[in-house]
Nucleic acid binder design. Structure first.
Lengths: 339, 339
DNA sequence: CTGTTAGCGCATTCAC
DNA sequence: GTGAATGCGCTAACAG
C-alpha cells in the first residue's frame, strides 16, 4: 500500500500541495470550503501526515528526550508517568533513555537525543555524574534543558526539585518531638545535592531543637537495603543511637528488618523514618514513617516547564515540589504496646 | 551556531556530498584515505548526523514505539527497562506511550506512533481492550508488531508472555502440598488472557490433586488492594476458605492485611499466595509467597524479537518467559510458631 | 485565498 | 572510487 502524500490529495482535488498543507495545518487563510474538501479527501484516501518530513522541514522534531537514572524505580517511574501525561496531551512524543546511574551511558544518551534532534531534554543526573561538562553540548545547541530531581547548578537551565530540605527537616523534627534523643542520619552519595539537602534539613532540625550534631551518628553511602542493614548495627550497638533518619526507604528498611530480627522493639527502642514513601512502607507493620515526594506531580511540573520553554516563554523559574512527612508507627516512641 | 551538513564537509575538503555520505555510512566503496579525511573533518567541524533527514530519505525512523498500560507499575517499569536496554544498545530510540488502561488512549497512542513512522511497535493491551480492531492499522501498514504480556490472538504478530499457567499451577500446588483444603481463587479482569491462564493453572493444580473445583471460592474483579480486602471477608467468614491464590500481589496484600488486622493467623489459619513478586512482598513479616514474572527478561526478549523482525527475519516464534514460585511464610501452614 | 518556487539534509541510482 | 542528479514529503516566503 503506497503512502498517500499531500501531493496525491492535491492532484485529486485540483489544488496545489501548498494549499493542502495549509488546509491540513488548520487555521491558516484557506477557504472553509477547500479546507473541508481537503480534510475529507485526506481521510478518504487514508492520508497520514508524515512527521519525519514535516520535522525536517520545520527543523523541529516534535519529540522530547528524557534521561532517567533507572526507569524501574518507584520514584522515577512516577516522574515518567507525570511527564508522559503532559507531553502526550500536548502532542509531543517522549523518548526515554536510561543512564543506569552510569556517566558514560548518560553521555551516550545525550548524544543519541541530540542526534535525534529532540526539541528539549529532561534529565536527572546519574550518581556518577560529579562532572557535568557533558551538559554543555545541550546548552550550546540552544536546546531547552530541564533538570529534575538530581540537578546541577553549573549550567543555565530550569530545575525541578523536591523540597528535600524540608522533608528531612520535618522528619527529623518529628523524631525529636517524639522523644528520641540520639538521632542518626543515613545519607546517600554526596555527589547528589538531594542528599546534601536532606542532610541540611536534618541538621537544621537538630539545631532548632538545641541538639548538638554528633558526627558519629552520621553515615553516607549508597542507600540500598544492604547498606542500611550494615550501618544500623554500628549505629545501634556501638554508637547507641535511638533513632535514624534515612535518606531512602530501602535503606530504612534494611535497618528496620535488621533490628526487628534482632528483637529490637521498633518504635519503642528505636525510631526510624525513611524518605520516598515507597508503596510498601504503609503496608508494613509497624508502618514505616516516610517523606512523600509527589513524584508524579514533579513530572507534571517538569513537563509543563519544558512546554513553556518550547513556546519561547523564557521566563520560567525553578520549581520546588513540596514534600510531606507521613507519620506511621515506626517513629512513634510512645505508641501503645497493644496497637 | 549553524548546523554543519555533509555539504559543508564536502566543500571543505573538495569532494561531493555523496562521497561524504558514503564515507560516513562506513563500509561502502570509498578509498580509505578519503574516508579518514571525511571522518576527521566531520569531527573537527562538529558535524552531527541529521537523523530526521536520514530517516525521511530512508523511509525508516529508527525509532520503536512502546505502549504500556501504566509505566509506574513494578512489572511494566521492569519490562520497559528490559526493552530500553536492548534497543538502546542497538541504536534504536524508544518512544513510550501510556494507555492508562484506557481503550481510547490506546488507540490514540497507536495513531501517534504510526504518524511518527515508528519502525515497530510493542504493545501490552489495556484492560478495556476487549475489541482489538485498532491493531489492524498496524498490521495493514506492515509495521512489525510485538505484543507482550497482555496479548491478543486476533492478529498475526509475535507474542511474548509469561508462563502464567505454570506460575499459578505451582503456587496452587504449593498450597495444596502445605495442607490447605479449601483454596480460593482471586482473579483479575476476564478481558485479559493472563488472568484466564492463571485461573486455568489454578484449576489444573486442583484437578491434579483430585480436588473438585468449588466455584463459590472463585472471585474475579480488579486486583487492587481494596478488592482483595473486600473479597477476603466473604471467602474467609462465609465460604470458610482456608487459603487463597491471588492473581496479583496487591490484592493478596489487601487480603493479607485485612485478615491480620482481624487477628487471623497467617499462615496457620489461612494461607495466601500472590502473583508478581512485588519488592515489598519479601519484606513483609510473614513474607508473602508469590510468583516471580521476570519482567526485565520479558522486556529483553520482546525487544530482541522486534530487532529480528526489523532485520527481516520473519521466522520468529512466540516466546514464553518462565515464571517461578517464591515460597515465603504466608503459605506455610506448618510453620513453626516461633519462626 | 491560492499558486509558485525553493529548499530542509541526506542517500541512492546511474554514470564515468 | 567518485561525481551528478534526483527526490523522500513537507512548509514557508513571496507573489498575485
Amino acid at each position: 500500500m503506497k503512502n498517500i502524500t499531500i501531493k496525491d490529495i492535491a492532484n485529486k482535488i485540483g489544488v496545489t500541495p501548498s494549499t493542502v498543507s495549509r488546509a491540513l495545518a488548520g487555521n491558516v487563510r484557506v477557504s472553509e470550503k477547500t479546507r473541508k474538501l481537503v480534510c475529507l479527501t485526506a481521510k478518504e484516501m487514508g492520508y497520514r501526515h508524515n512527521v519525519m518530513a514535516s520535522s525536517l522541514r520545520k527543523g523541529r522534531s516534535g519529540t522530547v528526550g528524557m534521561i532517567v537514572p533507572r526507569v524501574n524505580r518507584t520514584f522515577f517511574s512516577n516522574v515518567i508517568s507525570g511527564v508522559e501525561e503532559i507531553l502526550n496531551s500536548a502532542g509531543i512524543s517522549l523518548v526515554i533513555c536510561q543512564s543506569n546511574e552510569n556517566l558514560h551511558k548518560e553521555k551516550k544518551a545525550i548524544e543519541t537525543l541530540l542526534l535525534n534532534r529532540v526539541d528539549g531534554i529532561l534529565i536527572s543526573l546519574s550518581v556518577q555524574s560529579s562532572d557535568h561538562s557533558h551538559l554543555g553540548s545541550i546548552i550550546e545547541l540552544g536546546i531547552p534543558l530541564i533538570m529534575y530531581d538530581r540537578v546541577s547548578y553549573d549550567y543555565d537551565c530550569v530545575r525541578v526539585v523536591n523540597d528535600n530540605f524540608n522533608g528531612a527537616y520535618l522528619a527529623t523534627k518529628h523524631l525529636i518531638k517524639n522523644g528520641y534523643k540520639r538521632i542518626g542520619h543515613f545519607g546517600g552519595s554526596k555527589n547528589l545535592k538531594v542528599y546534601i539537602d536532606r542532610y541540611e534539613g536534618y541538621k537544621y532540625a537538630l539545631k532548632e531543637a538545641g541538639i548538638k550534631l554528633n558526627e558519629d551518628y552520621v553515615y553516607f553511602d549508597v542507600i540500598t537495603k544492604d547498606a542500611g542493614s550494615e550501618f544500623i548495627i554500628d549505629a545501634f550497638y556501638n554508637k547507641k543511637c535511638d533513632a535514624m533518619f534515612c535518606s531512602g526507604d530501602f535503606s530504612a528498611l534494611g535497618a528496620y528488618t535488621t533490628l526487628i530480627n534482632k528483637g529490637v522493639d521498633i518504635p519503642r527502642e528505636f525510631g526510624i523514618v525513611g524518605f520516598g514513601n515507597e508503596p510498601l512502607s504503609g503496608l508494613l507493620n509497624p508502618g514505616l514513617s516516610s517523606v512523600e515526594q509527589n513524584a508524579k506531580e514533579l513530572g507534571n511540573k517538569a513537563a509543563k516547564l519544558l512546554l513553556n520553554k518550547l513556546s519561547d516563554n523564557n521566563f520560567v523559574d525553578d520549581v520546588i515540589v513540596p514534600t510531606c512527612f507521613i507519620a506511621r508507627e515506626s517513629s512513634n516512641k510512645l505508641i501503645n504496646k497493644n496497637n
